[in-house]
Simulated assay, not measured.
Amino acid sequence: MTNPTTSPPSMRDGGTEMLEWLRFMRDEHPVWQDAQGLWHVFRYEDVQRASTDHAAFSSDRGRVMSGTKNIDRGNIVTMDPPEHGQIRKLISQAFAPRVIAGLAPRITEVTEELLDAASGAGTLDLVDDLAYPLPVIVIAELLGVPTSDRDLFRHWAQQFLNMQLRGRGDPELLRAIQEVLAEMKQYFAEQYRERLKNPGDDLFTALSAAESDGQRLDEEEVVNFTGQLLLAGHVSTTVLLSNVVVCLQDNPEAAAAVRADRSLIPDVVEEALRLRTPSMHLGRITTEEVKIGGKVIPADSIVSAWLLSANHDERHFENPGAFDLDRRARDHLAFGHGVHFCIGASLGRQEGQLALSSLLDRYSDIETVDREKLQWHDNGIMFGPKDLLISVRP
C-alpha cells in the first residue's frame, strides 16, 4: 500500500488500491494533512459536515487563490450563501423537474441512435460509442450549441481533468486554468450574444431571460455557468454510465436481477454511484480554525472532502464494499450534500437509467473485454474507466 504520508495511490489497477488506502485512512488518519499542506477528510460524518457547513467550510477558492474572481462569477460551485442561493434560484428555473422529465424521450432517442450507429460488430467501445456522446449531446442540445463541436468539448474536459490540485495558490495551475477558460469563454460568449439577437428554445435563452426578485444574470455569469455545466455534466455522467456496466459485470446476480425486473434500474444506478463514485472528492476552504475528526485545521486551509471514502465508510454503510440492490441507500454523497447538491443530479440519474434500460433491451448479454487492459482515469479526480470495450449479443 502507498505510504499514507506521501500521497493517494494510483488508479491504474481500477481502484482496488485506492479503496484499500481510503479504508486505512478512515481508520487511522480520518483527518490528514499531506506534504503539500492540503487537508483530507475521509469519514462520512466529517465529509458531510465539510460539504454542508458553509460558514466554516467555504466554497470560495478566491480566499486562497488570487485571480479567480472573474473565473468564478456565475459558478455556483465556488459561491457561498447568500450569493449562491440567489444565483441558484435563477438557474434552477431551467432545471425544474418538468423540464428534466421532458428530456426523457430525447435521451432515449439519442441512445438508440448512438447504439444503431455502433451496431454491426460484436463489440462496442462503451465510452466512445455511448457514454461520452450521450450526455454531451443532451447538454449541447439543452444549451442550444452545435453537437458537432463535441470533440472540442471533450478536449476542454480532458485538459481540466489533467490539472490536479497542486496546493495553495499554485500559479502554474491557475495559468493553465485561465488559458482553457479563455478559449471556452470566447466560445460561449459568442453563443450567448447570438441568442440575444435570435432567442430560441434553449438554456442560453432561458438563462438570459430568467428573473427572480428583479435580479437577472449578466453575460459573464451565464457564460461561466454554461461552461461549468457542459464540462461537469457530461464528464461525470460519462464515468457513471461506464461504472454501471462495470458494477453489473462484477456482480452477475445483480445483472440477472435487473434483467428480470427493470424496476430495479434506479437501484442499480444509485448503488453504482455509491460504490464507484464518479467524482472522488470536492474542495473547501476553512474560514476559521475548525476542529473536526479530532484535528484542528487552521483558517484559510484547503480541504479535500473525499466523497468516495464517505460512500465506503463502514460507520455509515453496512458492508460498503458489496454491490447490494437491497441497500436502497439514497443518502450517499456522490452528488454532494446541502446547498451545493449537484444541480444536474436528476439529469445525470435519468441519463444513466434510460441508457441502461436501452442496453438491456437491445442486448441479451454484455461482457467487458480485456478487463486487465483497461485504462482508468488516473488524474486524482475521477473514479472510473477511460475506455470500456464490451462484447454484446443481440
Rank of each mutant, 00 (worst) to 15 (best):
L142M: 14
P105V: 09
E109H: 12
I107V: 11
R150G: 05
E141V: 09
R150Y: 10
D151K: 12
A121H: 14
A104N: 12
L130E: 02
D125P: 00
Q159P: 08
R154Q: 09
H155T: 14
L143P: 02
G102Y: 05
D125S: 08
Y132A: 03
T111S: 15
D149E: 11
A131G: 06
L114D: 02
L143H: 01
P135M: 05
L124F: 12
E109R: 14
D116L: 11
D116T: 14
S119T: 13
V138W: 01
T108W: 08
P146W: 06
V145A: 04
F153A: 03
D128C: 09
D128M: 09
T111A: 14
E109Q: 15
A131Q: 02
I139W: 06
A140R: 00
A140P: 01
P133N: 04
D125A: 08
D128H: 12
V127K: 01
D129Q: 11
A117G: 15
T123Y: 08
Y132D: 00
L103A: 04
L130C: 07
V138N: 00
Q159W: 07
W156Y: 06
H155V: 15
T111D: 07
L115K: 01
A118Y: 02
T111V: 12
G122T: 14
A118M: 09
E141K: 03
I137M: 01
A131Y: 06
D116C: 12
P135C: 07
L143G: 02
T111L: 14
W156C: 04
H155Q: 15
E109C: 09
A118V: 08
V110Q: 01
I137H: 02
Q159Y: 12
H155S: 15
L126Q: 03
L115I: 08
A157F: 07
T123G: 10
L103Q: 09
S119M: 13
W156P: 05
L142F: 13
A157W: 04
H155L: 15
A101K: 13
F153N: 00
E112R: 15
A140C: 06
D125K: 04
D129W: 00
E113V: 10
T147P: 05
T108A: 13
G122Q: 14
D129Y: 01
D116E: 15
L130I: 07
D151M: 10
V110H: 00
V145T: 05
T147S: 11
I137T: 04
S119F: 12
A104W: 10
L152D: 03
E141F: 04
S148K: 14
V138P: 00
Q159D: 13
I107R: 01
V138D: 00
G120Y: 13
I139S: 00
E141M: 10
D129F: 01
R106H: 07
A117P: 12
H155Y: 15
D125H: 08
A131W: 02
V99S: 08
P105S: 13
R154F: 10
L126S: 01
L124T: 05
V99N: 04
E141I: 08
V127L: 09
A101Q: 15
T123C: 11
D149I: 02
A118K: 02
E113T: 11
T111Y: 03
A157E: 06
D128G: 11
A101H: 12
Q158W: 07
T147I: 08
V145E: 02
E109K: 10
G122W: 10
P146H: 08
L124H: 04
T108V: 15
A104D: 11
V127D: 00
R150F: 07
V145H: 03
L124E: 08
